[in-house]
Each structure stands twice: as structure tokens, then as C-alpha cells.
Simulated assay, not measured.
Amino acid sequence: MRTLSLLAVLLVLLLVSHPRNAADAHGHRFGKEKLTNLRFYLHDTLSDRDPTAVPVAHGAGATPRPGDPTPFSTVYVVDDVLTEGPQRTSRVVGSAQGLYASTGRHGLGLVLGIDFALNDYNGSSFVVFSRNPVTDGDGRELAVVGGRGAFRLARGFALLRTHYLNTGNGDAIIEYNVTLLHY
């Protein structure tokens, strides 16, 4: 009988703590977890008179190498445009704001901390904080670590494919295929 009572208590605790019953500090219930797949293109422009990525800090000795417009230890602040297709004239679907640092001493590698706000979701956003080994080719995977609004408590991943990269000036168009689990 004692074992049965203990099992009943454990079952109740499991049901109460299950994510479907989760509530935030204000008592808001999150409801059922959702799966969302997104596809868009990020336009990162370092050149031009109106760049969307600007270097704001760099370590001592951070000098550009031929074919490397993002020298090791340089930190960039970004406000990139997100579009539906790879052309800059495609419908704008949002913006990506944050920063990235050039962390590859022997090749182009970046660590990103960027908030992706999407117009079709009333400005709701998800956050990527991950390493982007740019020269590893297509299918690079970055971690989604959070979100707000429609993407509250988001987690997931983004698969990246380089659509365009100018190694002379650093301009790039990157295709993002994102899978989100959120409430």
C-alpha cells in the first residue's frame, strides 16, 4: 500500500511539472509546444556607403589579410536585412540585430549573438548564439537559444547555406533554414 501511495504522489508530481502545464512568473500558461520552420536570406554588407555590419573593436595586431575582410579578433555590430528571396529587392521579412566576432585565427570563423525579428510574426524574434565556421561550406548548423513573443522559449537550429560571398569586401547573402520549437 505504501508503494502504491508513493507511486500516486510521483505521478501527480510528474503531471504538475510537465511542460504543457508550465506557467511563467505571472501565471501565464504556455500551452502546447509548436514547431515552426522558416526560410529567409540574410544580407550582410560590410562595404558600401551604408553598411549593415560595422567593426567596433579589434585586438592588437588585427590587420586584414588578403582575401580576409574580417580579421581575427574583430567585433562587428550588425543590423542586417532579411528577405524572402536572395535578391535584395525581394520582400523584406525582418531584420537581424546583434554582433559577431571573428574567432578564426586560420580561417573565416565567426561567433554570432543575433536577434532575428520577423515582420510576419508581429516582430517576434528568436536568438542565435553559436559558432559559424563560414569556410566549412553549406549545411552549417547554428544553435537557437531563445525567443520572445510568438517564439517564447524557442530552441532549435538554423542550417546555413552561403548564397553569395565576396571574399574581397566581406559582403554576403546567407540562406537560413530554421527549425524552432516554441510555445
Rank of each mutant, 00 (worst) to 15 (best):
D24Y: 08
R152H: 13
A22I: 01
L110T: 03
V77C: 05
D48G: 15
R148H: 14
P19A: 09
P66H: 07
S125K: 13
T103V: 15
D50K: 12
V144W: 10
A23T: 15
V93R: 07
R20E: 09
V127N: 06
V16T: 12
A62P: 04
H106A: 12
G109V: 15
R91K: 15
Y76R: 12
L112C: 02
G94W: 07
P64H: 01
G94I: 04
V93P: 04
P133T: 05
A62R: 04
D115Q: 13
L110Y: 13
G104H: 11
N132Y: 10
V56Q: 00
E84P: 02
G67T: 08
D120Q: 12
L82G: 09
G113Y: 02
L153H: 11
D120R: 09
N122S: 14
H28N: 15
G113V: 10
L110C: 02
T52L: 01
D80H: 07
E141Y: 00
T63F: 09
T52M: 00
G146V: 08
R91T: 15
V93N: 06
S124P: 03
L35S: 14
G107Y: 05
L35K: 14
N37D: 13
Q87M: 07
L35R: 14
L46V: 10
N37V: 12
S125Q: 07
Y121K: 09
T83M: 09
V56N: 00
V78L: 11
L112R: 00
A22M: 06
S47I: 03
T83P: 05
A143P: 02
Y76K: 04
T89W: 01
V78D: 01
V77D: 00
F30L: 14
L112Q: 09
P64K: 15
Q87E: 15
R65N: 07
Q87C: 00
A154R: 08
D48M: 02
G156L: 08
F126L: 04
V145Y: 07
E84V: 03
D138K: 09
L38A: 07
N21Y: 13
V128N: 03
R49K: 14
V75L: 14
L108D: 02
A62V: 05
T89Y: 03
F30D: 03
A23P: 00
G31I: 10
F40K: 05
T63W: 01
R155E: 11
V81H: 01
P19R: 09
R91N: 12
E33N: 11
R105D: 05
Y100I: 05
V93W: 04
F157G: 06
L14A: 14
